[in-house]
Computed example of a mutant assay.
Amino acid sequence: MNDITAVAQLVLHERRARDRGWWDLMQGCLAPDAAIRLSWFRGQGAAFIAASQEMAARGDAATHILSPPTVDVVGDRAAVEIGAAIHLRGDLHGVEVDLTSHARLLYRAERRAGRWQITLLDPVYEYDSLAPSIPGTPVRLEADVLARARPSYRMLTCLLGAKDYAIGHDLYGDDRPEPVRQLYGTLFDWLRADNEK
């Protein structure tokens, strides 16, 4: 298996393992010191797995529909971008709703001791939508939460915030293009730096 295929399979297996609750397999994909920064979580790989287990136990498990990944490899470093539609069914103020959040997942991976592992995950949130799972059912959204929420992940903020998840307001999103441009620059600077050692 060549490196591009190996890294593509790595990120696909990590997302599948999270969706299916295969925690041991997920652990094998993530470096213990991996930096993970999502709407509801910031921390390292091992803590992310534990938090994902807790989230699933609460009935808040998500499903990721993924596009084909784009992989760039330089030496023992790889950068991956993969489009994702994140689906979550949940309860919002007593109404069952379906959330779809569209994002680009940006990964860094490194070959350590001959094995590829994910060392960073940063999503770029694009937009999201929320609908009742039974069409026509009224859904109540809190005006103050809507007013404070970022456009790129507004409905995610409403749903997860109502479930007592702390949602960051400084994440990467298409509503703030300059930090996203800098993120891509940092990612590819890091990738090329491995070739300059």
Results as ranks from 00 to 15, higher is better:
N2T: 07
I4Q: 07
A6R: 09
V7R: 02
V7K: 03
A8M: 03
L12Q: 14
E14F: 14
R15A: 05
A17F: 06
R20Y: 04
G21R: 04
W22R: 14
D24Y: 03
D24R: 05
L25D: 11
M26R: 04
D33S: 14
R37I: 01
S39A: 15
Q44P: 07
G45K: 01
A47V: 11
E54G: 12
E54W: 09
M55W: 15
A57M: 07
D60V: 05
S67A: 12
P69W: 01
P69M: 03
D72K: 04
D76F: 03
R77E: 04
A78F: 04
E81A: 13
I86H: 07
I86G: 04
H87F: 07
G90Y: 14
L92F: 09
L92P: 09
D98F: 01
D98K: 02
T100H: 05
Y107K: 08
E110L: 12
R111S: 00
Q117S: 02
Q117A: 02
T119I: 09
T119A: 01
D122P: 00
D122G: 00
Y127D: 07
D128L: 05
G136Q: 01
P138A: 12
V139G: 10
L141H: 09
L141A: 06
L141V: 08
A143S: 13
D144G: 12
S152D: 08
T157D: 04
T157G: 10
C158Q: 13
C158M: 11
A162S: 13
A162F: 02
K163N: 10
K163I: 11
D164A: 11
Y165S: 08
G168A: 14
H169F: 05
R176F: 02
E178Y: 04
E178R: 06
P179W: 01
Q182M: 06
Q182V: 08
Q182G: 03
Q182L: 10
Q182C: 03
L183M: 14
Y184A: 02
F188N: 02
D189F: 02
W190R: 02
A193Q: 13
D194A: 15
